[in-house]
Design a protein around this nucleic acid. Structure first.
Length: 287
DNA sequence: AAGAGGCCCTGATAGC
DNA sequence: TGCTATCAGGGCCTCT
Protein backbone atom coordinates (compact mmCIF):
# COMPACT_ATOMS: atom_id res chain seq x y z
CA UNK A 1 0.00 0.00 0.00
CA UNK A 2 2.09 2.86 1.18
CA UNK A 3 4.88 4.85 -0.33
CA UNK A 4 5.82 8.27 0.98
CA UNK A 5 2.72 10.07 -0.37
CA UNK A 6 0.25 7.60 1.14
CA UNK A 7 2.04 7.72 4.48
CA UNK A 8 2.01 11.51 4.36
CA UNK A 9 -1.74 11.54 3.71
CA UNK A 10 -2.24 9.28 6.71
CA UNK A 11 0.05 11.50 8.79
CA UNK A 12 -1.92 14.61 7.97
CA UNK A 13 -5.28 13.18 8.93
CA UNK A 14 -3.85 11.40 11.96
CA UNK A 15 -2.24 14.61 13.17
CA UNK A 16 -5.59 16.40 13.00
CA UNK A 17 -7.29 13.66 14.97
CA UNK A 18 -4.86 12.87 17.77
CA UNK A 19 -2.48 15.79 18.17
CA UNK A 20 -2.40 16.97 21.80
CA UNK A 21 -4.55 14.06 22.87
CA UNK A 22 -3.66 11.70 25.65
CA UNK A 23 -3.49 7.96 25.14
CA UNK A 24 -5.93 6.40 27.58
CA UNK A 25 -5.38 2.79 26.78
CA UNK A 26 -3.65 0.51 24.30
CA UNK A 27 -5.03 -2.87 23.35
CA UNK A 28 -2.86 -5.39 21.54
CA UNK A 29 -5.05 -7.79 19.63
CA UNK A 30 -2.22 -9.56 17.87
CA UNK A 31 1.47 -9.06 18.61
CA UNK A 32 2.70 -10.70 15.44
CA UNK A 33 3.99 -8.11 13.04
CA UNK A 34 7.40 -7.82 11.35
CA UNK A 35 8.79 -7.26 14.83
CA UNK A 36 6.81 -8.81 17.64
CA UNK A 37 5.16 -6.09 19.69
CA UNK A 38 6.89 -6.19 23.10
CA UNK A 39 4.93 -6.90 26.28
CA UNK A 40 5.63 -3.46 27.74
CA UNK A 41 4.45 -1.64 24.60
CA UNK A 42 1.12 -0.54 26.07
CA UNK A 43 2.80 0.80 29.18
CA UNK A 44 5.14 2.97 27.18
CA UNK A 45 2.24 4.65 25.38
CA UNK A 46 -0.48 4.82 27.99
CA UNK A 47 -1.05 8.16 29.72
CA UNK A 48 1.27 9.93 27.29
CA UNK A 49 0.16 12.90 25.27
CA UNK A 50 0.80 12.86 21.51
CA UNK A 51 2.54 16.17 20.84
CA UNK A 52 2.31 15.71 17.07
CA UNK A 53 2.36 13.14 14.31
CA UNK A 54 5.48 13.32 12.18
CA UNK A 55 6.83 11.33 9.28
CA UNK A 56 10.13 10.39 7.77
CA UNK A 57 10.18 8.49 4.51
CA UNK A 58 7.55 5.75 4.86
CA UNK A 59 7.62 5.82 8.66
CA UNK A 60 4.97 7.48 10.80
CA UNK A 61 6.29 8.97 14.02
CA UNK A 62 4.01 9.60 16.98
CA UNK A 63 5.89 12.15 19.09
CA UNK A 64 5.14 11.59 22.77
CA UNK A 65 5.21 14.17 25.54
CA UNK A 66 8.09 12.44 27.35
CA UNK A 67 10.33 12.93 24.29
CA UNK A 68 10.05 9.32 23.22
CA UNK A 69 8.62 8.23 19.88
CA UNK A 70 6.31 5.56 18.57
CA UNK A 71 7.32 4.51 15.06
CA UNK A 72 4.71 2.96 12.82
CA UNK A 73 5.52 1.36 9.51
CA UNK A 74 2.62 0.19 7.36
CA UNK A 75 4.59 -2.41 5.43
CA UNK A 76 2.70 -3.55 2.34
CA UNK A 77 -0.80 -3.86 3.72
CA UNK A 78 -1.03 -1.83 6.93
CA UNK A 79 -3.99 0.54 7.32
CA UNK A 80 -5.13 2.78 10.12
CA UNK A 81 -8.82 3.17 10.83
CA UNK A 82 -10.45 5.67 13.09
CA UNK A 83 -13.44 4.83 15.24
CA UNK A 84 -15.43 7.34 17.26
CA UNK A 85 -16.46 6.24 20.68
CA UNK A 86 -19.59 8.30 21.03
CA UNK A 87 -22.51 7.08 18.93
CA UNK A 88 -23.88 10.59 18.59
CA UNK A 89 -20.57 11.61 17.03
CA UNK A 90 -20.80 8.75 14.63
CA UNK A 91 -24.18 9.82 13.35
CA UNK A 92 -23.34 13.49 12.94
CA UNK A 93 -19.88 13.09 11.49
CA UNK A 94 -20.15 13.10 7.70
CA UNK A 95 -16.96 11.12 7.26
CA UNK A 96 -18.64 8.25 9.05
CA UNK A 97 -20.84 7.56 6.06
CA UNK A 98 -17.83 7.31 3.79
CA UNK A 99 -15.87 5.17 6.19
CA UNK A 100 -15.17 1.60 5.32
CA UNK A 101 -16.57 -0.92 7.71
CA UNK A 102 -13.91 -1.66 10.26
CA UNK A 103 -12.35 -4.99 9.37
CA UNK A 104 -12.67 -7.61 12.07
CA UNK A 105 -9.73 -9.71 10.96
CA UNK A 106 -6.06 -8.74 11.28
CA UNK A 107 -6.58 -5.88 13.70
CA UNK A 108 -3.33 -5.75 15.64
CA UNK A 109 -3.27 -2.60 17.75
CA UNK A 110 -5.88 -0.20 19.12
CA UNK A 111 -4.78 3.10 20.59
CA UNK A 112 -7.64 4.59 22.57
CA UNK A 113 -8.17 8.27 23.29
CA UNK A 114 -11.04 9.96 25.07
CA UNK A 115 -13.37 10.35 22.11
CA UNK A 116 -11.91 8.06 19.53
CA UNK A 117 -9.56 5.22 18.90
CA UNK A 118 -7.23 4.36 16.06
CA UNK A 119 -7.06 0.77 14.88
CA UNK A 120 -4.10 -0.71 13.06
CA UNK A 121 -4.96 -3.49 10.63
CA UNK A 122 -2.35 -5.45 8.67
CA UNK A 123 -3.15 -8.74 6.90
CA UNK A 124 0.35 -9.40 5.64
CA UNK A 125 2.07 -8.34 8.87
CA UNK A 126 4.97 -6.61 7.17
CA UNK A 127 4.36 -3.46 9.18
CA UNK A 128 5.56 -2.79 12.70
CA UNK A 129 5.35 -0.66 15.83
CA UNK A 130 8.46 0.37 17.68
CA UNK A 131 9.09 2.64 20.66
CA UNK A 132 12.22 4.79 20.39
CA UNK A 133 13.35 6.27 23.69
CA UNK A 134 14.82 9.59 22.60
CA UNK A 135 15.76 11.79 19.66
CA UNK A 136 19.32 10.51 19.55
CA UNK A 137 18.11 6.95 19.08
CA UNK A 138 15.56 8.13 16.55
CA UNK A 139 18.30 9.70 14.48
CA UNK A 140 20.28 6.51 14.77
CA UNK A 141 17.26 4.47 13.73
CA UNK A 142 17.06 6.37 10.45
CA UNK A 143 20.81 6.71 9.92
CA UNK A 144 20.94 4.13 7.14
CA UNK A 145 18.25 5.89 5.10
CA UNK A 146 19.08 8.29 2.30
CA UNK A 147 17.54 11.76 2.05
CA UNK A 148 13.96 12.21 0.93
CA UNK A 149 13.64 13.59 -2.61
CA UNK A 150 12.52 16.94 -1.10
CA UNK A 151 15.74 17.33 0.84
CA UNK A 152 18.32 19.66 -0.69
CA UNK A 153 20.89 16.97 0.09
CA UNK A 154 19.36 15.00 -2.77
CA UNK A 155 21.37 16.91 -5.37
CA UNK A 156 23.68 16.25 -8.31
CA UNK A 157 26.81 16.03 -6.22
CA UNK A 158 25.20 13.53 -3.87
CA UNK A 159 24.00 11.39 -6.74
CA UNK A 160 27.32 11.27 -8.56
CA UNK A 161 29.16 10.44 -5.34
CA UNK A 162 26.69 7.71 -4.49
CA UNK A 163 26.87 6.17 -7.96
CA UNK A 164 30.64 5.88 -7.90
CA UNK A 165 31.78 2.28 -8.13
CA UNK A 166 28.20 1.03 -8.62
CA UNK A 167 26.75 -0.53 -11.73
CA UNK A 168 23.06 -1.33 -11.30
CA UNK A 169 20.18 0.05 -13.32
CA UNK A 170 18.44 3.28 -12.37
CA UNK A 171 15.17 1.64 -11.31
CA UNK A 172 16.83 -0.34 -8.55
CA UNK A 173 18.50 2.81 -7.23
CA UNK A 174 15.18 4.61 -6.96
CA UNK A 175 13.91 1.70 -4.88
CA UNK A 176 17.05 1.64 -2.74
CA UNK A 177 16.09 3.41 0.49
CA UNK A 178 19.75 3.93 1.36
CA UNK A 179 20.10 6.05 -1.75
CA UNK A 180 16.85 8.01 -1.59
CA UNK A 181 14.06 7.26 0.83
CA UNK A 182 10.32 7.29 0.30
CA UNK A 183 10.05 6.13 -3.30
CA UNK A 184 8.45 2.73 -3.81
CA UNK A 185 7.58 0.54 -6.74
CA UNK A 186 4.71 2.59 -8.18
CA UNK A 187 6.32 6.00 -8.09
CA UNK A 188 9.68 4.67 -9.31
CA UNK A 189 8.04 3.71 -12.62
CA UNK A 190 6.19 7.03 -12.82
CA UNK A 191 9.32 9.08 -12.10
CA UNK A 192 11.26 7.27 -14.82
CA UNK A 193 8.47 7.76 -17.33
CA UNK A 194 8.37 11.48 -16.64
CA UNK A 195 12.16 11.57 -17.02
CA UNK A 196 12.01 9.60 -20.29
CA UNK A 197 14.46 7.11 -18.90
CA UNK A 198 14.37 3.36 -19.44
CA UNK A 199 14.29 1.64 -16.04
CA UNK A 200 16.95 -0.83 -17.20
CA UNK A 201 19.39 1.94 -18.04
CA UNK A 202 22.67 1.55 -16.19
CA UNK A 203 23.61 4.49 -14.03
CA UNK A 204 27.01 4.63 -15.72
CA UNK A 205 25.32 5.79 -18.93
CA UNK A 206 23.26 8.54 -17.29
CA UNK A 207 24.00 12.06 -18.45
CA UNK A 208 24.11 15.13 -16.26
CA UNK A 209 20.69 16.12 -17.60
CA UNK A 210 19.23 12.73 -16.76
CA UNK A 211 20.23 13.04 -13.11
CA UNK A 212 18.78 16.51 -13.04
CA UNK A 213 15.48 15.18 -14.36
CA UNK A 214 15.43 12.46 -11.73
CA UNK A 215 15.85 15.00 -8.95
CA UNK A 216 13.14 17.30 -10.28
CA UNK A 217 10.66 14.58 -11.21
CA UNK A 218 11.00 12.66 -7.95
CA UNK A 219 9.84 15.73 -6.08
CA UNK A 220 7.18 16.47 -8.66
CA UNK A 221 5.59 13.01 -8.68
CA UNK A 222 5.56 12.65 -4.90
CA UNK A 223 4.20 16.14 -4.26
CA UNK A 224 1.52 15.69 -6.89
CA UNK A 225 0.53 12.35 -5.36
CA UNK A 226 0.29 13.90 -1.89
CA UNK A 227 -1.86 16.70 -3.26
CA UNK A 228 -4.21 14.14 -4.77
CA UNK A 229 -4.53 12.14 -1.57
CA UNK A 230 -2.20 9.32 -2.61
CA UNK A 231 -2.94 6.39 -4.87
CA UNK A 232 -5.80 4.04 -4.07
CA UNK A 233 -5.08 0.70 -5.56
CA UNK A 234 -6.26 -2.24 -3.48
CA UNK A 235 -7.43 -0.73 -0.22
CA UNK A 236 -5.59 2.47 0.49
CA UNK A 237 -7.90 5.09 1.96
CA UNK A 238 -7.23 8.02 4.19
CA UNK A 239 -8.58 7.98 7.71
CA UNK A 240 -11.90 9.42 6.63
CA UNK A 241 -12.34 6.47 4.32
CA UNK A 242 -11.80 8.52 1.19
CA UNK A 243 -9.79 7.24 -1.72
CA UNK A 244 -6.83 9.09 -3.09
CA UNK A 245 -7.01 9.82 -6.79
CA UNK A 246 -3.43 9.69 -8.05
CA UNK A 247 -3.99 6.24 -9.56
CA UNK A 248 -6.00 8.03 -12.25
CA UNK A 249 -2.81 9.87 -13.13
CA UNK A 250 -0.66 6.78 -13.54
CA UNK A 251 1.10 7.08 -16.86
CA UNK A 252 2.66 3.63 -16.83
CA UNK A 253 2.00 1.72 -13.61
CA UNK A 254 -0.46 -1.13 -14.15
CA UNK A 255 -0.95 -0.09 -17.79
CA UNK A 256 0.72 -3.00 -19.57
CA UNK A 257 -0.35 -3.24 -23.22
CA UNK A 258 -2.03 0.17 -23.26
CA UNK A 259 -1.02 3.17 -25.34
CA UNK A 260 1.58 5.60 -24.09
CA UNK A 261 -0.06 8.73 -22.70
CA UNK A 262 2.64 11.08 -23.92
CA UNK A 263 1.20 13.20 -26.70
CA UNK A 264 2.09 11.95 -30.18
CA UNK A 265 3.99 8.95 -28.78
CA UNK A 266 2.89 5.72 -30.48
CA UNK A 267 4.52 3.53 -27.84
CA UNK A 268 2.95 0.69 -25.89
CA UNK A 269 3.47 0.26 -22.15
CA UNK A 270 5.56 -2.81 -21.37
CA UNK A 271 5.98 -4.70 -18.11
CA UNK A 272 9.27 -6.21 -17.01
CA UNK A 273 10.51 -7.60 -13.74
CA UNK A 274 13.39 -5.45 -12.54
CA UNK A 275 14.95 -5.94 -9.11
CA UNK A 276 12.25 -8.49 -8.40
CA UNK A 277 9.38 -6.05 -8.90
CA UNK A 278 7.01 -5.34 -11.78
CA UNK A 279 8.23 -2.35 -13.71
CA UNK A 280 6.26 -0.45 -16.34
CA UNK A 281 7.63 1.74 -19.11
CA UNK A 282 6.95 2.95 -22.64
CA UNK A 283 8.90 1.04 -25.26
CA UNK A 284 9.39 4.14 -27.41
CA UNK A 285 9.76 7.33 -25.39
CA UNK A 286 11.79 5.86 -22.52
CA UNK A 287 15.23 5.30 -23.94
C1' DA B 1 31.73 -3.65 -1.14
C1' DA B 2 28.11 -4.39 -4.38
C1' DG B 3 24.50 -7.02 -6.26
C1' DA B 4 21.34 -10.97 -6.79
C1' DG B 5 17.98 -13.55 -4.70
C1' DG B 6 15.17 -15.35 -1.06
C1' DC B 7 12.20 -14.66 2.66
C1' DC B 8 8.73 -12.79 6.01
C1' DC B 9 2.82 -13.21 5.49
C1' DT B 10 -2.10 -13.31 3.81
C1' DG B 11 -5.48 -12.45 0.27
C1' DA B 12 -7.20 -11.66 -4.39
C1' DT B 13 -7.43 -13.31 -8.81
C1' DA B 14 -6.61 -16.27 -12.84
C1' DG B 15 -6.50 -20.66 -14.93
C1' DC B 16 -7.52 -25.37 -15.02
C1' DT C 1 -16.86 -25.83 -6.89
C1' DG C 2 -12.26 -26.38 -5.68
C1' DC C 3 -7.67 -26.84 -6.43
C1' DT C 4 -3.03 -24.60 -7.59
C1' DA C 5 -0.10 -20.93 -9.14
C1' DT C 6 0.99 -16.21 -9.34
C1' DC C 7 1.09 -11.72 -7.85
C1' DA C 8 0.76 -7.60 -4.58
C1' DG C 9 2.51 -0.74 -3.06
C1' DG C 10 8.41 -3.06 1.72
C1' DG C 11 12.52 -4.15 3.77
C1' DC C 12 15.79 -7.22 5.75
C1' DC C 13 18.94 -11.02 5.49
C1' DT C 14 22.36 -14.17 3.39
C1' DC C 15 25.29 -15.69 -0.10
C1' DT C 16 28.62 -14.93 -3.74
Amino acid sequence: MPELPEVEVVRQSLNKKIKKKKVKRVIIRNRNLRFKIPLNFSNLLENKKITKVDRFSKYLILCLCNKSYCLIHLGMSGTIHIVYKNKKNLLTNSSFYNSPKLPNKHNHVEIIFKNLKIVYNDPRRFGFFQIIQNSYLLKKRFAHLGPEPFNSKFNLRYISTYFKGKKKNIKSFLLDQNFVSGIGNIYASEILFLSRLNPKKKISSLEYQDCKKIIINSKKILLDAIKKGGSSIRDFKNLSGRNGSFQKDFKVYNREGLNCKRSKCLGIIKKKIISNRSTFFCNICQI
